[in-house]
């Protein structure tokens, strides 16, 4: 499989601050690739660099084998973009927004109108085609932005936190649509800080923090590699919880906020022990990407 996106030793500074510090990544055609990281990790900056919207300090970016920023116009012709912030055109209705946007790609009106019908169907906005943008809910706006990113029938779709701030119903609908897009052969590149999203959608992902890539791999493999398979989350009086977990077994535990996370290969003995302690509540679950993420990026708060 050829790489749709190839980034080599990429660096980016804003004034004195280095926000991207030598990242390398390669996105294979037809896959969904995730960039995970806390706020300020450099995810959005990386996407802007990739689209030729921001000058690179050093390093090389190739998309479809073409150099960025030199071939930015040609690359954006074949790429769809869902930005993090809503920037639909408030002067126009839903259908007009997509017509105008299609115009920026030079798509003839007849071709465009046929495609718009399919796109409205795809994101479930057929009955809102003539609504004004101000009357749409947040979820509708995001779905429209996704439809907008598809007007040029792109080979690569870049999504910057596509479900941030949306309710669970809309989030699940969007996840379904993104899976459909991947199924139809498009390459997806998305940033997120929702672990569940990354785990459900991504074939391959990188975990980014402070401008660096900490780890790369398939979600399941990363979980196997970095954390024990079983986790118990314990809430309750701190000293009781600490004593209970210290005496319970040979697993390791960490404290995040007011929660104890206990990691182990076999949780049976600990669960039994905790069931006898009525002052503690606990949740026994399989390890997930969030555990990997917290282990790699640490527990302190980010701005």
């Amino acid at each position: 499989m050829s790489a749709v996106v190839q980034i080599t030793d990429l660096h980016k500074n804003y004034n004195e601050r280095e926000v991207v510090r030598g990242i390398n990544l390669s996105v294979a055609a037809g896959t969904c690739f995730g960039v995970l990281g806390p706020n300020g990790a450099g995810k959005t900056t990386t996407l802007r660099l990739l689209l030729g919207q921001s000058p690179v300090n050093s390093g090389e970016i190739r998309v479809f084998g073409l150099p960025i920023p030199q071939a930015g116009r040609a690359v954006r012709m074949r790429t769809g973009v869902v930005p993090q912030a809503d920037n639909l055109d408030p002067d126009f209705t839903v259908v007009e927004n997509l017509r105008i946007y299609g115009g920026y790609f030079g798509i003839p009106a007849a071709t465009l109108d046929a495609r718009l019908r399919e796109l409205f169907e795809f994101v479930g906005l057929t009955d809102r085609a003539h609504a004004r943008i101000a009357t749409l809910s947040g979820g509708m706006k995001r779905r429209l932005t996704i439809a907008r990113a598809l007007v040029n029938d792109p080979e690569l779709v870049v999504l910057d936190e596509p479900t941030t701030g949306l309710d669970p119903q809309v989030r699940h609908m969007i996840w379904g649509r993104l899976r459909d897009l991947r199924q139809s052969g498009k390459t997806l590149l998305l940033t997120t800080h929702y672990m569940e999203e990354a785990e459900r959608l991504c074939d391959e992902l990188v975990i980014m923090d402070q401008g660096r890539i900490l780890e790369q791999g398939k979600p399941a493999a990363l979980i196997r590699q970095h954390v024990e398979p079983e986790v118990i989350e314990v809430h309750g009086e701190e000293t009781v919880a600490r004593r209970a977990l210290e005496s319970a077994g040979d697993g390791r535990f960490e404290v995040v906020g007011d929660t104890f996370y206990y990691y182990t290969r076999d949780a049976r003995a600990v669960v039994k022990h905790l069931e006898g302690l009525s002052e503690l509540t606990f949740l026994h679950r399989p390890a997930n990407l969030e555990d990997v993420f917290l282990k790699l990026t640490g527990h302190e708060l980010r701005d």
């Binding site: 689209l51 930015g72 116009r73 012709m77 790429t79 973009v81 930005p83 912030a85 055109d89």
Partner: peptide, 14 residues
């Protein structure tokens, strides 16, 4: 405020 150019700049328009 309207970020219209941000949206346009993700297309081939420069």
């Amino acid at each position: 405020p309207q970020r219209t150019y941000d949206a346009i700049l993700t297309t081939p328009v420069e």
